[in-house]
């Protein structure tokens, strides 16, 4: 893993094709809970497939669609492109 400073941003701002690691869940508690229960919790690796307002992400081999509000409440640290 690279030791370069890692930018932190909401998932909606992760560029398509890049992978991030979930660091914090903010916002609605019930929603965070469900996200965690789906294996999308802290430390999960997320690859953004596409999306501008609605995001499509790959988490643990499943494709998950999130709307803008949902993607905004998931904070990820960007991993270097090679870290997949």
């Amino acid at each position: 893993m690279s030791s370069a400073p890692i930018p932190l941003s909401p998932l909606c701002q992760l560029p398509a094709g890049r992978t991030g690691r979930v660091t914090r869940l903010t916002g609605d508690e019930g929603f965070c809970q469900r996200i965690r229960e789906m294996g999308f919790g802290e430390a999960a690796l997320v690859t953004k497939i596409s999306g501008s307002s609605t995001s499509l992400c790959l988490v643990n081999g499943m494709r998950i669609a999130l709307n803008h509000g949902a993607a905004m409440s998931i904070l990820v640290e960007h991993l270097p492109a090679a870290a997949r």
Binding site: G27, D28, F31, R34, I35, M38, F40, T54, L56, M62, R63, I64, A65, L66, N67, G69, A70, S73
Partner: peptide, 11 residues
């Protein structure tokens, strides 16, 4: 409030 969506897309 605007709802949050999380939806699994099947293959």
């Amino acid at each position: 409030s605007p709802p949050l969506m999380i939806l699994e897309l099947p293959p």
